[in-house]
Design a protein around this nucleic acid. Structure first.
Lengths: 272, 272
DNA sequence: CTTGACTCTCCCCCCACTGGAGGCTGTATA
DNA sequence: TATACAGCCTCCAGTGGGGGGAGAGTCAAG
């Protein structure tokens, strides 16, 4: 019969931890004095404790360890658990490696320019959105106003009000001089019927979108694109779909010059 | 003035999170209605929020982000923080990779033997211990009893009682047929004076010890050594110091055959 | 009998939220 | 004007794996 302090010294596991393992039922003392509450351990329990430490080291949670230890698991079950863990850890390693790449890209950027970019580039998941849209070809992006006019008109005719920020999709694979294939979209909810020229569908979710917020008139939007494209290049992604411009705060008068316009550029990407 | 729900939709950050950022002072709404408590945001704040997300993505804690954002940091400071992060992440990546190696080694073991080893191998840090010891050459390990006799006698003469489990150090670089260089040690506290033949000193801490618990008589201790050596080999470590046997529960009569003896083998290692 | 080391329970703390209860507020509709 | 109902508020509890400390009881040696 060993008291908790000695058992702690033998096993080099903190007393607090032993009490915690008792509490969660992972390692119960062989005897607990009814009157004093003192915990008494046996040498045999060091083996179980060591097994706990080993499994913890492999990255299992205490709950999983409890199940593993008490379930009298077969080698096949153990194999299954380990393979599961393996893939989880692999993913973790990859995530951390990507994070590292992002930190390094940021560092390089500072080294080169000795200043911080105006743009904070972020990778995020974007949910599916139900939208109404009009797609067409216009000479240059600033001339997409006509498409917006069409869309607004058709939505107004159905008495539909948009829910959320509107956006444009740029369907061209690469930048062009003239004749851009642009789809202008308004998020909608509930029943909206498509009509000639207007599509209603669900824009699928994008698992990873590289995004930046541009805060200023459209005239300077290209700076944001520059920052984004540089980032994508440096972090080893490539573009895998139409770029979105989300108009977080469109201007009431002229977004081309209004300095209070806020726009988010979203580029769907995949790891190269 | 945007209400929290719309701001949440625009930024794709959950409402709960926005409220939390308000609470911790990371992103305060431009106005909070005194009467209703409603939070009101501005479009400009999306930029700050995006910067928060970007820094979070680099792995900074919210507290660090708060400092980074509010301290008006120079590029040099930012560089310093990033380099710090970089090394932290690198270490994390390496740790996870090592963990992965351990999982894989465990998997291979199951594949090969289709059963689980009796021994759970664990890497741990071992603190420095102050010990009294007697070192000598004996024909074979089971014959180290004479060294123990000497040590006990000298300690008894000083009225010293050991504190904690005693241990042996095996100083030979490789296993031998005969004439082992063994040091038998008792942990001690306070003032103990060395005498002829008995050393008193601090056994230095070992940053990484590969350990396994053997539960059974000394006769079968070699199985534990086999398991340990195999593990060390498979995980790409190498031995970097004298192996320790820690007698967690020595037998009162004969440890050679007593099945209740509990011994821990500790092998100091380094990554190859 | 006293001292000091040991142990007990109980509570709060960490991080970055998430979920839920219960109660206001604001807007649209009947 | 009454009533839905969506949106917002605060407060509380919980996550995992313990760490730190208070206050009180217990054990063994001198």
């Amino acid at each position: 019969m060993i008291r908790i302090g000695d058992f702690s010294q033998l096993s080099r596991v903190p007393i607090k931890t032993l009490r915690y393992y008792d509490e969660v039922g992972l390692l119960k003392p062989v005897r607990v004095d009814d009157f004093t509450g003192y915990r008494y351990y046996e040498h045999e329990q060091i083996a179980r404790l060591n097994r706990i430490l080993a499994l913890k080291d492999l990255g299992f949670s205490l709950e999983q360890i409890g199940q593993l230890l008490d379930a009298g698991l077969s080698p096949e079950q153990m194999r299954g658990m380990l393979i599961l863990r393996q893939s989880e850890i692999r993913q973790r390693v990859q995530e951390e490696a990507e994070r590292l790449a992002r930190v390094e890209s940021r560092l390089r950027q500072i080294e080169q320019e000795n200043e911080m970019s105006k743009y904070d580039v972020v990778v995020k998941h974007v949910d599916a959105i139900r939208i109404a849209s009009v797609r067409g070809v216009v000479p240059t992006p600033p001339e997409q106003g006509s498409l917006w006019g069409e869309l607004e008109q058709m939505l107004a005719r159905q008495g539909i009000k948009p829910v959320g920020a509107c956006l444009s999709l740029y369907h061209d694979e690469e930048p062009k001089e003239r004749d851009w294939d642009i789809e202008v979209c308004e998020p909608v909810a509930g029943d909206v019927t498509a009509s000639r020229g207007m599509n209603v569908y669900e824009l699928p979710a994008a698992p990873s979108m590289v995004c930046a917020i541009h805060h200023g008139p459209f005239q300077t939007l290209s700076q944001a694109y520059d920052a984004l494209m540089k980032w994508i290049d440096e972090n080893g992604y490539h573009i895998c779909g139409p770029v979105r411009e989300v108009y977080l705060r469109p201007s009431d008068n002229d977004s081309q010059t209004d300095p209070n316009t806020v726009t988010e550029i979203q580029v769907p990407v995949m790891k190269a």
